[in-house]
Structure formats: C-alpha cells, structure tokens
Design a protein around this nucleic acid. Structure first.
Length: 349
DNA sequence: TAACCGTGGCG
DNA sequence: TCGCCAAGGTT
C-alpha cells in the first residue's frame, strides 16, 4: 500500500532546496516569526501570473527600486507604471496593480489586509494570488493552487480528468494536504517542486521527496499528466502600423484605450487587426512608404502579420490621430513587444 | 461558461 | 517553424 504524501517530507526538502529568489526570504535566513514584506510578495505574485521567473526578475528589481513601498507605487503616474511594465505582457495586470495599490492606501491605510477575504476584494487579486499572499506574507493556512500545484496533485493522485474540468478536484486534493505548520513555506515548497522536479516534461522523479507517495510514479503516467482539453488553433489577422517621424525626431504615438488588447499601452496609430486587410487609414497626411517584410507577432488567441508604413513629416503639420512625442519622452522600451517589433523593422537592422 | 488577455523559451 | 508552457484574473 502506497503511503500518503506527507507535507513534512516536502518541507524538509524545501529547507535544503528552496530556490533563491529576489522576492523570497529563504527559510534558513528568516528570524523566528519574521515574514517577507507583503508588498513585495503581492508584487511578485502579480508579475508571476502566467509568467516565468526569468522574465519577472528584472521587472521586479526595477519596480521595487523605483517604488519601494505600496504608497510609492500608489502615487506613481499611470503612464510611468505602464511604461515600466511594457514587455511583460497581460497589461490588465499593470492597470489593476495601480488600482490595487491605490485601494490599499485609500481603504486600508497603506497596509495590505491580512485576511483571505480582504485580499480577494483587491483589484487583480483572485483566488490564487490571495492564497499566495495570505500564506507567504502572513503564514495563514491558505490553499494555493497554481499550474504547478495542479500538475503535482494530478500526478500524486494519478488524476486523469482533463483540465480545466479537474480544477475543483485538484483544489480539494491540495486543500487536504495543506498543513497548519509552516503553510507559507509549504505553499512555496509545492510550487518549487513543480518548477524544479515535477516539471511538465522530463520530470526528475528520481529526486522527488514524494516519489514514494506518488500514484503516477507507480502507474508510470507522470509525463502525461495533467491531461488537458484540446486547444483551439489561432487564426491569423492582418494589420497596418503607421510610424510617422517628424523632422525634429519626434514620433507619432497613440495611447490605447484602457479596455481590450494592450489596453492602456502606447502604440503606433494603425488599422484594425482583422482576418481581412483593412482599408487605408493613415493618421497624418504624408508620403507613406511601405517597408519590405512585416512584423510578426503571436498573441494569446491569434497570430498577427503587421505591415509597417513610414513617413517623414514637417513640423507644422497636425496629425489626425495621436500625439508627437519627442526623443526625451520616448523610449522603444516603453512599447509593448508587438509595437517594438514594428519600430525595429522601421529602424532597420 | 468560455472567451479574452502577452510574451519568451524550449523541444 | 510551431505548439506548448509559465506563480491567473476579469468579464
């Protein structure tokens, strides 16, 4: 008879193998009762939503250096935060980040709430993030279910129900294992296990502290779990981006509306992105030249092939759309990746 | 409920 | 080249 997974075994493993991360206070370096700063925990968890640790690290460093506290962030200008987030993706996270920071200051005296419900009420904080902050920052026995935990639970219990249907089952399994002792370390331990041992491909079962309790190990099914519902194929959309440079070096840019794709981000004026080519709609009268090639980019649910057109315009000509931004106030790093690709194409190799 | 919402790395 | 995948939330 197989043993059941013991949280203690995972904590022993974690005490030795915990990853060193900029937002983490390692278990051995922590004074008794000492906890990491809830602001840093929250910020890291928002950034880590659907995003790799490697991608997050430089953004986390930049944000915490520039805005060391939640009050600093709450006082920031919207456009500065959006520019600092540019390239990280899922820009609703950045808009909600500011809303949340301002709510913490306005409604909670600049201190993060220390209850699950209080955290859940904050913008951009859902069940996972609320549980993670509750556990990691406040050591509350919250159950934390992310992609790692789903994978670990599916394997430990050899659960073949496909996601997302299996989510409630896997959540129940995770809740049944969550210990009253060191819940914050435990939450991070399961996620570290999923990130370093119980990986999607080529899991290192030989190194796993839970191998003796793993039903998928016994059944030889670990690599094929968790099962997932088949994905839909992405359609391809076409569009045109207009890059106008004024003779003084200013670029014609446009702030995108808060809702929808790339909401709140800076971008080039352009056509709609649709499956069929859109009619011509330059933002300013000029001699437009179409660049050879195109900017290709894949979003969550479609591929984009963007034709880039450029023009040089005189000082005295007003644009029909957008605003000219001088070199002092614009860096290509302020742009979401698709817009930066268009810029790179225009600037040349 | 299911669609929407980014990006970069990897095999 | 391409699909998969990563510490999900909102509507």
């Amino acid at each position: 008879m197989r043993e059941t997974p013991r949280p203690q075994d995972l904590l022993v493993w974690y005490d030795r193998h915990a990853r060193a991360l900029p937002w983490r206070v390692p278990p051995r370096a922590r004074v008794p009762g000492g906890r990491p700063d809830p602001y840093r925990v929250w910020l890291s968890e928002i950034m880590l939503q659907q995003t790799t640790v490697a991608a997050v690290k430089p953004y986390f460093e930049a944000f915490t250096t520039r805005w060391p506290t939640v009050s600093d962030l709450a006082a920031a200008r919207d456009e500065d935060v959006m520019a600092a987030w540019a390239g990280l993706g899922y820009y609703a996270r950045a808009r909600n980040l500011l809303k949340c920071a301002r709510a913490v200051v306005a409604d909670h005296g600049g201190v993060f709430p220390d209850t699950l419900d209080g955290l859940l009420s904050l913008p951009g904080v859902g069940p996972y993030t609320a549980g993670a902050v509750a556990a990691i920052a406040f050591d509350l026995p919250a159950t934390v279910v992310d992609g790692n935990v789903e994978r670990v639970m599916a394997r430990v219990h050899d659960e073949h129900t496909p996601l997302p249907q299996a989510k409630p089952i896997l959540t129940e399994m995770a809740a049944a294992l969550t210990p009253a002792d060191r819940p914050g370390d435990y939450a991070q331990a399961v996620m570290d296990l999923g990130a370093t041992i119980c990986t999607p491909r080529n899991p290192a079962c030989g190194l796993c502290p839970w191998r003796g309790a793993c039903a998928a190990w016994d059944a030889g099914t670990a690599v094929e779990l968790p099962k997932k519902a088949p994905k839909k194929r992405k359609p391809t959309r076409l569009g045109i981006a207009y890059l106008a440079r004024r003779v003084d070096g200013a670029w014609l840019l446009e702030r995108r509306p808060d809702k929808g794709l790339l909401g709140g981000m800076l971008g080039w004026p352009g056509s709609d992105w649709a499956e069929e080519a859109s009619p011509e709609s330059p933002p300013i009268r000029a001699e437009w030249k179409t660049l050879p090639g195109e900017a290709r980019h894949t979003f969550t649910h479609f591929h984009l092939r963007l034709t880039v057109r450029t023009a040089l315009v005189p000082m005295d000509r007003p644009p029909g759309r957008g605003v000219f931004v001088g070199p002092e106030d614009f860096s290509p790093s302020d742009l979401p990746t698709v817009m930066r690709k268009a810029f790179d194409l225009a600037r040349g190799p």
